[in-house]
């Protein structure tokens, strides 16, 4: 590790200890719903790697192109993805980006980025345990979002590829539109149960499928 001034921490254990996503407990508490013809389909993309990058756009762009093969989104509130759609980088603020990669890749990613970046002043923070990704799809997904977030989710204002940080009911969310029919919601671990319950409640009138 060339960047000796920051301390990397490997959170991926060598063995195989029990691991629980933020929604594990909620799934146990709230019976999963599975209505026929559900207007809303809710899933958790559990245990992904979440890394927050902060620093100058130019230096970070070069590094992520090299390491991830994706360019850093320069336009505010946009998300860049790799071809498989498995790795993404989202603009969060002029000096902050959220990288989401398949679970287990986050430590290697951090290491490669630090090596590539050398002594550049950046911050790389692994937050994989602190948040999780929910996906919302189905004919009524947009209505459920309209009940939930004040940001305009109309296709005109929220095209595929957009992503924003905004209010989710009384919590917060990073909301991304991945395709014409699917949304991703990045929620904080401690709020995940609240968000899950809210989505179940707000989706009830359309029918919801959670598993």
């Amino acid at each position: 590790m060339s960047n000796v001034s920051a301390k990397q921490f490997d959170t991926v254990p060598a063995g195989n200890p029990a691991v629980e996503s933020p929604l594990c407990w909620s799934y146990q508490q709230q019976k999963t719903a599975n209505s026929a013809n559900a207007g809303v389909v809710l899933r958790e993309k559990a245990l992904l790697g979440h890394v927050v990058l902060r620093g100058g756009a130019i230096v970070l762009d070069e590094a992520v192109r090299q390491v991830l093969g994706i360019s850093l989104p320069a336009k505010p509130n946009t998300v860049e993805r790799d071809e498989a759609g498995e790795r993404s980088i989202q603009w969060i603020s002029p000096d902050e980006w959220l990288v989401i990669v398949p679970g287990g890749e986050e430590c290697a990613l951090e290491r490669s980025l630090r090596e590539t970046l050398g002594d550049a002043h950046v911050s790389i923070v692994n937050v994989s345990g602190g948040q999780t990704v929910l996906t919302l799809a189905g004919d009524n997904a947009r209505e459920v979002l309209m009940k939930t977030v004040s940001f305009d989710v109309h296709p005109h204002a929220f095209p595929v590829g957009k992503g924003v940080t905004t209010i989710f009911a009384k919590a917060t969310v990073v909301l991304r539109r991945t395709s014409e029919t699917e949304w991703e919601l990045v929620v904080r671990r401690s709020f995940a149960d609240y968000c899950y319950r809210w989505l179940l409640d707000a989706s009830a009138e359309y029918g919801i499928d959670t598993q």
Binding site: V19, S128, R189
Partner: peptide, 28 residues
């Protein structure tokens, strides 16, 4: 077996270790 940070700090006045682990492994 889970990577952790251990802090020898005390809010009780007794010998104490604060263990930080990534939250997904906490219950284990």
């Amino acid at each position: 077996e889970v990577p952790a940070r251990i802090f020898r700090i005390s809010f009780t006045g007794e010998l104490a270790f604060e263990i930080n682990v990534q939250a997904n492994y906490a219950l284990h």
